[in-house]
Amino acid sequence: MSQSQPTAPSHPVGDAGPATARGWWHGRSGLFLAAFMAAFSTYLLVGVLTMAVPDGADAPGPQFVPLIIAVAGYILAALLAVHYIRTPEPAVTPTFTAEDDATDEERRAAEAAATVQYRTFSDWYAVGWSVAGFLAFALLLNVLGWILGAALLFWCVAHGIGSRRHLFDASLGLLLSSFIYLAFDVGLGLSLPSGLLGGVF
């Protein structure tokens, strides 16, 4: 998959500092992954233990493979936890490598921007708006209908990623959602809910 980007920083600019100076959790957010693996394995394990197996099922039964998966999941969770506790991620700041195509001016601007310390690696404002927008879309879709619901989703994500032209975004979202409704619902026959606007037309 595309997780490996070729632009590894050649000379990090922002001072990462020792992990202790920035709190024990800094660089160890990967423990979430270990916690997730443990939780997922627990879900499988509870499922295996409470499963009602019909009589006469050939051995190995329906519990066999899930049990292996759950055990493997617990082992991986433990290994991940050890990995992140012993070697926290270094604070990586975005910089240009010598390979990148950039003028000196751009390079300086980027390096100046890179020294700004964000408290978190991820831009939670952008993610928050995108996720909240999607949640609202999922819950309100049948009430609002496709055209309004999808336009709302579009607006939230665009706003989160940094667009500040509120009215323009809203009209663009409506344009896109109406276009999709016409092309896929009316044209190709997929069923999208008409919702509120269904009564009007």
Binding site: L141, L153, A158, D169
Partner: peptide
């Protein structure tokens, strides 16, 4: 960029709703 990724999100929602028709699948 904001419009590009907003548009892709809308397409994700559309694709899944069109095949399942349920709020559960969207969540």
């Amino acid at each position: 960029r904001p419009y590009l990724y907003a548009g892709i999100t809308v397409f994700c929602g559309m694709g899944v709703y069109a095949t399942s028709g349920s709020t559960f699948d969207l969540l």
